[in-house]
């Protein structure tokens, strides 16, 4: 359980996130949504204890963070940043094994190898285990790094745009796996997403940020109203529904008169 109590985060004197309160529940996937530059990544990094919060506090169970995170705060988190570069001569298996950094000896035993390979199998890239990570495509690398964060045994899982380099199929399998593992391990999962429709399908709760403030927090069907999305993103939208009842957000092209110039 993560509690945010009127959290404010400043960077370089500027307020990025202000007066944010929310309860994030274990076993739930929470998606953070919002336009570019609205503090989604900043919020995630603050949760991870990488950025100080200027007022308010964040609680993870009994641990309390105010201004500075207490020691061992990060031990309870898995954090996957947006950056998925890895120009290093390590095999995919070695990269995933690093997820268990605290427990590694000079000899890696079969138990850890098996665990790592199971993560690769779950993410569907077991066949890449022996390849160098630098030789993979961006999407494959992102899956490998996701397998790496799965190796940690966190209480909370923080993912910053984990689908940015993935095709449709892999976006779905990553999020599906995230939902399953979140339920199974009772993680409190927080994921920054850009695709509202994916968020509506996979997240239990949506937290919409706009201008550094919480615009809405709740179940997808309640949060994703045409008014809210139009206001937050500044584009007119229609909300449709798919056959399963999930909201589908359709941006509406402004109906202006267009002039077609004759080819001259």
């Amino acid at each position: 359980m993560i509690h945010l109590d009127s959290v404010e985060i400043r960077r370089g004197g500027q307020v990025i996130v202000s007066d944010l309160s929310a309860h994030l529940q274990p076993g739930h996937v929470h998606a953070i949504l919002g336009p570019n530059g609205t503090g989604k990544t900043t919020l995630l990094r603050a949760l991870f204890g990488e950025l100080p919060i200027s007022s308010g506090r964040i609680r993870l169970g009994d641990l309390v963070m105010a201004e500075r995170p207490p020691s061992h705060w990060r031990d309870h988190f898995s954090y996957m940043s947006q950056d998925n570069n890895a120009d290093v001569a390590l095999t995919v298996l070695e990269v995933v094994v690093l997820g268990r950094l605290g427990k590694l000896q000079l000899h890696i035993d079969d138990e850890i190898l098996t665990l790592a390979l199971e993560k690769l199998q779950e993410t569907g890239i077991l066949h890449l285990a022996d390849r160098y990570i630098a030789s993979l495509s961006g999407g494959q690398r992102q899956m490998a790094l996701f397998a790496q964060v799965l190796m940690r045994e966190p209480k909370a899982m923080l993912l910053d745009e984990p689908c940015s380099a993935l095709d449709m199929k892999h976006q779905m399998s990553l999020l599906e796996l995230l939902v399953q593992e979140t339920r199974r391990n009772n993680w409190t999962s927080v994921v920054v997403l850009h695709d509202l429709n994916l968020a509506a399908q996979y997240a239990d709760r949506l937290l919409v940020l706009g201008g550094g403030r919480c615009q809405a927090f709740g179940a997808p069907a309640d949060v994703l109203t045409p008014e809210l999305v139009s206001k937050t993103y500044g584009v007119p939208v229609e909300i449709l529904h798919d056959s399963a009842g999930h909201p589908v957000i359709q941006p509406v092209r402004p109906r202006t008169i267009s002039f077609h110039r004759e080819a001259s």
Partner: peptide
Amino acid sequence: RMGEARAASLG
């Protein structure tokens, strides 16, 4: 070698 941010996130 995986990057400073990622190393930090691995503890």
